[in-house]
């Protein structure tokens, strides 16, 4: 079956989640004896677009006339590509654009969508089943897509993309699309040079146990040593010690890094919902009864103010020896 992958670009750069989506598309194409075509827009360089071949795309369709992400114009672009390629499976990353364009395309094509998929579809005859997180990470559900065209939005960090030396052919694909009814006025860049939390493979997080916003230096130093992003618990974001975009949990963002280190967070069920997709969890807490230890792989019963600097030193020692 022909697989189409929608590739999101941001200021000329291809997002990590989009590479994962292309690789995921390749895994589906291998199961269905199909090929992968990517469709994208904006100012990504020819070289970067050819490199989508490394992840499994045979061909890349690009509309350079679309500069700004807008759900109505991007839905038109996706629809045109589905029709041009005769695609039966469409893959998005479950990111900001995927969340607004994929459902729109689903409603337009009457093509079933599984948003936030975490696994390669099980395909057996006419049965096409995709697993996703439900109940804010507390459970999984298998969804059957019952329509001829199937859309999947892949949860970031669900697959580690493997690459080859193949390159993709790049074709201009510039049909007219709906004019944007929403205009961009300003951009607010958050976190400066830091790693965006949803994409981070390593995350260092802290909570009220840190006692105040001035004490975050030891968290940032550990994150710096590891090359990790920083996160926080809800109370810490609510009292303004840390920015809201760092809040992970049921009402913040859900993340699934390879490593989540939590210091001074007790581990309420709402916090766990946002992080229990993490592959490995390390909990540092003075209270041996903290519920978070039940969800942890490694635990350190101790004072974050002593343990974090010690861990930072150990990481630095390991990195220099490595």
């Amino acid at each position: 079956m022909s697989v189409l992958v929608f590739v999101e670009t941001h200021e000329g750069k291809i997002a990590k989640a989009a590479y994962e989506a292309v690789y995921y598309g390749k895994l589906i194409a291998e199961k269905t004896s199909g090929t992968v075509t990517a469709v994208t827009y904006g100012d990504a360089s020819e070289g970067d677009l050819e490199k989508l071949g490394n992840y499994g795309a045979k061909k890349v369709l690009v509309n350079k006339n679309i500069k700004v992400a807008n759900d109505q114009s991007l839905t038109d672009l996706a629809q045109q590509a589905v029709e041009a390629e005769g695609a039966k499976i469409v893959v998005f990353a479950f990111d900001v654009v995927g969340k607004s364009v994929a459902p729109r395309l689903s409603a337009r094509l009457k093509a079933g969508l599984v948003p936030g998929a975490i696994d390669v579809p099980e395909i057996d005859g006419d049965n096409f089943v995709v697993t996703k997180n439900v109940f804010s990470g507390k459970a999984f559900a298998k969804y059957s897509i019952k329509t001829e065209i199937k859309i999947i939005a892949l949860l970031p960090n669900s697959f580690k993309a493997e690459t080859s030396d193949e390159t993709a052919s790049v074709e201009t694909f510039e049909n007219g699309v709906a004019e944007s009814k929403i205009t961009l006025k300003d951009k607010i860049v958050e976190g400066g040079e830091g790693i965006p939390l949803p994409e981070a493979e390593l995350v260092v997080s802290a909570g009220r146990g840190l006692k105040g916003p001035d004490n975050w230096g030891i968290v940032e130093e550990l994150a710096g040593a590891l090359g990790a992003a920083t996160a926080c618990s809800r109370p810490v974001a609510d009292i303004g010690w840390r920015p809201h975009h760092e809040h992970v949990g049921q009402t913040g963002i859900a993340i699934r890094p390879n490593l989540y280190i939590a210091a001074g967070i007790s581990g309420a069920i709402q916090h766990l919902a946002g992080v229990n997709g993490s592959k490995v969890i390390v909990v540092i807490n003075t209270d041996p009864e903290a519920p978070f230890f039940k969800a942890a792989d490694y635990g350190v019963v101790g004072d974050a103010f002593e343990v974090l600097p010690r861990l930072t030193d150990a990481v630095k020692k390991f990195k220099t020896a490595d």
Binding site: V134, K138, T147, V283, G299, E306
Partner: peptide, 28 residues
């Protein structure tokens, strides 16, 4: 367009492995 076939719960975590707070080299 879609239908839930079945639900499941995440596998239970094994017991946490406790590390001596003095020995962060071991954790690394």
């Amino acid at each position: 367009l879609t239908e839930v076939v079945s639900y499941s719960l995440p596998p239970e975590k094994g017991d946490v492995k406790l590390i001596d707070p003095e020995n962060m080299d071991e954790l690394v």
